[in-house]
């Protein structure tokens, strides 16, 4: 072992002690090793009790998000060399409940994601013989950016509003709602307005912009939320002044099943 770097991990082992504590490890400073590689080294060689999530190791699955020196990051895409001489402090993602060591409780996020109905909602009856539901490149471009979200939750960790207001539906969920709102095959805007216009919806965002800075996929949730605010404000006044003219809620897409 030539060069090494110190890794400090905030651990939480509720069956051993009620409060989280810091533990330090020393790992080889291999070139091209990510922070995730260091954690894997610790688990394999130094301390098998360390718990963390990971899967693809290539920035696609969104499982290995953690706080690295106080900033939310995908640990597979964050390299040890950038943090010389160390130490590197690794914590579970901020603004989430922690279940164990670096593992956060994702239930809250999953519930919020579901609440914006991020799936295709349409009344159009289509048969299998109709073939693909094609779009032009321009129609795809209108929302493609928002499809790139990998649900890594870094934006939730970066956003102070999420930390201060637990009802806030959050950046990724709104960006994903917009992914369907801007899809010309979808007509579920009205169903999504119910969540996004309500308490905890898009208007709880105070435009800090940290979500877009943290996003590893350049989804730009900040932009998605501000664009929704413009659409949502129009809808709010429509519903207030002339409720009949407002977009009528349609089915939420769940009931539509393959016969």
């Amino acid at each position: 072992m030539d060069k090494t770097i110190k890794i400090q991990v905030r651990r939480y082992l509720p069956e051993k002690q009620p409060d989280p504590f810091w533990q330090e490890y020393e790992v080889p400073l291999e070139p091209k090793w990510g922070v995730l590689d260091a954690l894997i080294y610790i688990k394999d060689h130094l301390d098998g009790s360390l718990s963390y999530r990971w899967s693809c190791h290539m920035g696609v699955c969104g499982s290995c998000g953690m706080m690295v020196n106080g900033e939310p990051a995908l640990t597979c895409a964050t390299f040890l060399e950038e943090y010389q001489p160390g130490p590197i402090r690794i914590e579970p993602l901020a603004n989430f409940k922690v279940l164990r060591d670096l593992i956060i409780d994702t239930d809250d996020f999953m519930g919020k994601l579901k609440s914006v109905k991020p799936w295709l909602i349409t009344d159009e009856k289509r048969d299998i013989t109709d073939g693909e539901n094609r779009q032009t490149p321009a129609e795809l471009k209108a929302f493609k950016q928002y499809t790139l979200c990998i649900n890594c939750m870094l934006c939730y960790s970066a956003c102070p509003v999420v930390g201060l207001n637990e009802d806030f539906v959050g950046p990724a969920a709104i960006a994903l709602a917009q992914r369907y709102n801007y899809d010309n095959r979808d007509s579920g805007n009205a169903a999504r307005h119910d969540t996004l216009l309500a308490h905890g919806g898009a208007f709880d965002c105070t435009l800090i912009g940290e979500c877009s800075r943290a996003c590893p996929k350049h989804v730009d949730p900040t932009g998605a939320i501000q664009r929704y605010k413009a659409d949502g404000a129009m809808e709010y006044w429509k519903r207030l002044i002339w409720p009949k003219a407002a977009t009528a809620p349609k089915n939420d897409g769940i009931v539509k099943q393959i016969d």
């Binding site: 509720p14 069956e15 989280p20 603004n95 409940k97 922690v98 279940l99 102070p160 201060l164």
Partner: peptide, 10 residues
């Protein structure tokens, strides 16, 4: 295997 979680406050 799902003991009580802790929620760090800001």
């Amino acid at each position: 295997f799902r003991p009580s979680a802790y929620h760090p406050s800001m």
